[in-house]
Amino acid sequence: MSWNRRKLAERFGPYILSLVILGVFILVWESLTRPPKFDPTGKSEDDLTVLEFNGDIVRNEATGKYVYNPKKVLGIPGPGKVWEKAAEELGEAFVKKGANDHGIGLLVYYTIKRFLAGFLVGSVVAVFLGVLIGLSKPLFIALNPFIQVLKPISPLAWMPLLLYSVKDPVWTAIFVVFMASLWPTVANTAFGVNSIRKDYLHVATLLEMTYLRRLFLVILPAAAPAIIAGLRISFGSALVAVVPAEMLLGELGAGYLTWIEWNNLNISGVIFAILVVGVVGYILDYGFGKLASKFTYAEV
C-alpha cells in the first residue's frame, strides 16, 4: 500500500488537529496568566519595605530593582507552574508523607477502589431489580412510583442520612456511589427485559428451557444492549458523584486532593487535581467501553 498525501492526511489529520488545539489552548492560557510586572512608581520606600517583608516582592540583587516574588502566585497559575506541580506530584506518586498526605498514585488508587466497589455492587443490585421489574407487569406498576421519586434525587443528597446511619465515612462514600449507579441501570434493564422480541422467548419455550436457563441464555443476553446502555449512564453519574463525596467526607482520593489543595491555597495543585480527575474518568470509561463491547450484539 502506498501512502500518498491524501491518505496520510486522512489518517493523521485529526490527531494533528488535536495537538494544534492543545497547543493553542496552552498558549492562550499562558498569555492570559503571565505574571504582571511590578511597578514601584507611586510607592514610598516604606511601602516597598512592608511588601518585601510580607514576601510579596523581592529585590533583584543584580539590578537592585524589585520584582514580584516568583514563589508567591498571583491570579490563576500558568501552564508552566501547573506542569512543575504535576512533575513534583508524579515524582512522588506512591509516597506516604503523612496520615493525610499520600502520593497522587495512591489517591487515584483509593478513588478507583471506592468507585468500583460502589458501582459493581450497585450494578448487580440494579440489574437484579430491573430484570424482576421487567419480567412482571404488576411489579413494574407497583414499583414505578417509588423509582420515579427516588431517581431524580442527587446521590449526594443521601450523604447526611447515610453518614448518620452507617457512621463511617469510608462506607458512606461507597454508598453514595452505590446510590448514584442504581437508578439508570434499573430503569434501562426493566425496559430492555420488557421489550425483548417475542421470537426469542418463543424459541426458549419451544426448547423447553428451565426458568434459570431461560433467564441466563435468553433474557439477559437479549436485554444486554439495553442493560449496558443503562450501566453506561450509571457509570457516568457514579463518576460524577465520587469526587464531591470525597471532598465532603474528607476521604483520601483524587477528589479530596482538589479540596486539600484549595485549603492550602495552592491553585496549581487544584488545577492538577482537576486534570487528574479527568484522566482517571477517561481511563475508567475507556475500560468500561472495551468491556461493554464484548456483551453487545448487532440487532438483526
Binding site: 421470537d199 426469542y200 418463543h202 424459541v203 419451544l206 426448547l207 423447553e208 443476553p221 440487532e299
Partner: peptide, 17 residues
C-alpha cells in the same frame, strides 16, 4: 410448546448474540 414440535419462523427467530 415443546421440542417434539419445532417451529421454523418466518422471522427466523435466531439469537443474534
Amino acid at each position: 410448546p415443546g421440542l417434539d414440535r419445532m417451529v421454523v419462523f418466518q422471522s427466523f427467530a435466531l439469537m443474534p448474540w
